[in-house]
Design a protein around this nucleic acid. Structure first.
Lengths: 163, 163
DNA sequence: TACAAATGATTTGAGTTCAAATTATATGGT
DNA sequence: ACCATATAATTTGAACTCAAATCATTTGTA
């Protein structure tokens, strides 16, 4: 079945789509498991981390940081605020902007949180040769790029791993 | 801190997670665009294709084929049946099983459907050297494998190794 | 000054996704 | 035959996701 056609190759494209679906599903399932274990979903943990790592930060920036739409971000922030893990406050200078910061409870929750990707994945991935790890990350990044995510400030992603 | 070789490399893992989020987002956005253009979402199209390619087929098989949970599959099948593109019928021998098939309208809809991944992606991906294409597909597959083979069972994600 | 355009956050509406519980049917063991 | 277990589909409940519309505020321009 190995025809090496140089033009469009729908079969290859289909493979890509298929792999993406498998990855998405695996992540979803993992997310449910984490949720059951810690009471926080993966997106919630991601945002919590982003707030911790960036200090008081606007919603706009958080959305970019986490590759989420503003709409999605707000719903997650609503949940986190509802749980008392995050505090939102309007900037007094520019009253359109809203800054989020962790509460003490938020810090605590984050410290007790599990790794965001399945432990088994971490183990397997870490046991690959560093070179292979870089290849995989580069490939994922390339796919994201080609899919048009480009939009973002793409610079920092490619530290010494040229495609 | 020199954590060069202690095994785990959180930074790399984080890169992977980040890339996956970007891919997921790109696919979501693409899906919305397709929906607006065709009136069918990407998952709906995927299932439609799977039915066409597999003939009358059980829900269980469809779920596996598309890497979706049974629950998700049913809701999509509900939508497709509601639109008159798919027909479900119980097997008379094994009355637990339900077979889906395309209606004439379903065939038509599928013939007019656009490629499932953004045209821009197809162009870019197809213009890569075949070898690079294979590399990327292999990398995606490897990630799916490492994530998915979760084989669940007993993998308590406890011991609070924080991220 | 006044008013339009831009910006930031939010709400609304529709869809997807999963686990867990439920319903219906089949199969295997006693 | 009878009942326990297994299998297939479905329902239920809770999150996530986005685009588009909306509200509030700021900035730029006539």
């Amino acid at each position: 079945m190995s025809e090496t056609e140089s033009g469009r190759n729908p079969a290859q494209i289909k493979e890509v789509l298929r792999a993406i679906r498998r990855i998405t599903r695996a992540v979803d399932i993992q997310s449910k498991q984490v949720t059951k274990a810690v009471g926080l979903t993966v997106p919630q943990l991601v945002i919590l981390q982003a707030i911790r790592d960036n200090g008081p930060v606007t919603s706009k920036r958080l959305a970019e940081e986490a590759s989420l739409s503003p709409a999605t971000l707000v719903t997650i922030l609503d949940k986190l605020e509802g749980k008392g893990l995050v505090e939102r406050r309007r900037d007094s200078r520019d009253r359109r902007a809203v800054y989020s910061r962790l509460t003490a409870a938020g810090e605590t929750a984050l410290n007790g949180a599990p790794p965001l990707l399945h432990a088994a994945f971490s183990t397997r991935f870490s046991s690959l040769p560093p070179e292979r790890q870089r290849e995989i990350i580069a490939a994922l990044g390339a796919v994201a790029e080609m899919l048009g995510t480009g939009r973002l400030d793409a610079a920092p992603v490619l530290d010494g791993a040229p495609l």
